[in-house]
Design a protein around this nucleic acid. Structure first.
Length: 381
RNA sequence: GGCGACGUGGCCGAAUGGUUUAGGCAAGGGCCUGCAAAGCCCUCUAUUUGGGUUCGAUUCCCAACGUCGCCUCCA
């Protein structure tokens, strides 16, 4: 018995068949602002994967990094007039409170990018030694021409990748670059940004290298499952894979999993648009278990819209489930397992539990597999 | 190209594993009227295509075709 999951790179639902110990890496947050529903959705999906794998008897080592060395963090710290690590520490603590409130399982480790500078130095050295990177103008660039499989995670054409990079101000016209898609592994810092010494010059890491270095340090050369929000597929994961396989010569990731974006008011929930629903705010109004249900009511591969019906509906659902405790013995746990193994069909799992609860069965074991513990009375509202 | 949603009469739009697939608009006919309008009555036309599951599918599954949405955001 194993789960079947959609693999972004293979573009189909395939059996996910890791060994007894499952090595998972999910790209975590850049801690410069509060956790919103989009973040929560991503990590709740991975939490349920982890729960089902444990349920199947696996030991799961899940790494979720914290990107505390990055441009948006520096910008926000500059704006607030605080040190970037102070800002990061505060936001990271908020994020952890949200994750605890939503009852996510502890992960194996949550390493910070700032802890990985020496690993990153070593990693870049490996990439250079193996001939996949070059130094120019104080920066180190990955040489995409040495990686013929570049693009096999996202399945974008060269032209599309270049266009996307250009739209993002990805410096495709940087004169130091040999190819427009070459990306930075290391680059000089601005005056008010942190800087570290290296043999090829002072500076700071590029934004893809941290995850590769941390994955190697924490989990080894090949990991079973890697992912995050679908917004990370390109360029982040494309670049990660290229540089990791360049450094180690081994397959980096066996299975890629990405969680679809959450929308509000017709547009992707994002900091730049400001159409955010914050988890900590929501928690003051609703039981966190209802929030979890409202998120997993959607399939992880479908984009979905946050609307006002969601919380009342799932509050009612939580009440129905809680009211079932002490009822007749139920077989619904097996139905939920079967739904989760079918590409993580959480909507189907919820429907099965709804039906069982309506039939007077005790659904607490099934709810628990989804991270919803029915023991406590229902909270706010 | 990828992922997802959808595809019901001329148009819009409900519903459904099983005798007649709502309703509205439009159209045609009639009543009424000096004529017309309004109103009322009647009539008319549909489940994209091809497979599959089933005793039976429009409904469930697969494929094709078509329409729409999303695909740079940093979760």
């Amino acid at each position: 018995m194993s789960m079947r999951l959609y693999d972004t790179a293979r573009q189909e639902v395939v059996p996910f068949t890791p060994g007894e110990t499952v090595l998972m890496y999910t790209c975590g947050i850049t801690p410069y602002d509060a956790t919103h529903l989009g973040h929560a959705a991503t990590f709740l999906v991975y939490d349920i994967v982890q729960r089902r794998l444990i349920d199947l008897g696996h030991t799961v080592k899940c790494v979720r990094n914290v990107t505390d060395v990055d441009d948006p963090l520096f910008a926000k710290a500059r704006e607030l007039g605080v040190h970037y690590l102070d800002l990061a520490a505060g936001e990271e603590a908020r994020f952890n409170r949200d994750m605890v409130a939503l009852n996510t399982l502890p992960v194996y480790s949550t390493p910070r990018a700032s802890s990985a500078i020496s690993d990153i130095r070593g990693f870049i050295g490996m990439v250079i030694d193996r001939g996949f990177a070059y130094v120019a103008g104080g920066s180190v660039y990955f040489d995409v021409s040495k990686s013929p499989t570049f693009g096999e995670v996202s399945h974008y054409s060269q032209e599309q990748m270049i266009e996307f990079a250009r739209q993002r101000g990805g410096k495709v016209d940087d004169p130091n670059k040999r190819h427009p898609l070459d990306f930075v592994l290391w680059h000089p810092s601005a005056d008010d940004e942190p800087s570290w010494e290296t043999t090829w010059g002072p500076g700071r890491p590029g934004w893809h290298i941290e995850c590769s270095a941390l994955a190697l340090r924490e989990l080894g050369t090949t990991i079973d499952l890697h992912g995050g929000g679908s917004d990370l597929i390109f360029p982040h994961h494309e670049c990660e894979r290229a540089q990791s396989e360049a450094a180690t010569g081994e397959q980096f990731v066996k299975h890629w999993m990405h969680v679809a974006m959450v929308f509000k008011d017709g547009e992707k929930m994002s900091k730049s648009l400001g159409n955010l629903v914050f988890v900590d705010k929501l928690r003051t109004e609703w039981d966190p278990r209802s929030i979890r249900l409202a998120v997993i009511e959607h399939h992880y591969r479908n984009e979905w819209e946050w609307d006002d019906e969601l919380m009342p509906r799932n509050h009612a659902r939580l009440l129905a489930w809680t009211g079932s405790v002490g009822g007749a013995e139920s077989q619904v746990l097996d139905a939920v397992r079967e739904r989760l193994d079918d590409d993580l069909d959480t909507p189907g799992a919820l429907r099965a539990i709804d039906a069982a609860a309506a039939a007077g069965e005790d659904v607490s074991a099934a709810a628990s597999l989804l991270g919803v513990e029915l023991g406590d009375p229902v909270g706010p509202r």
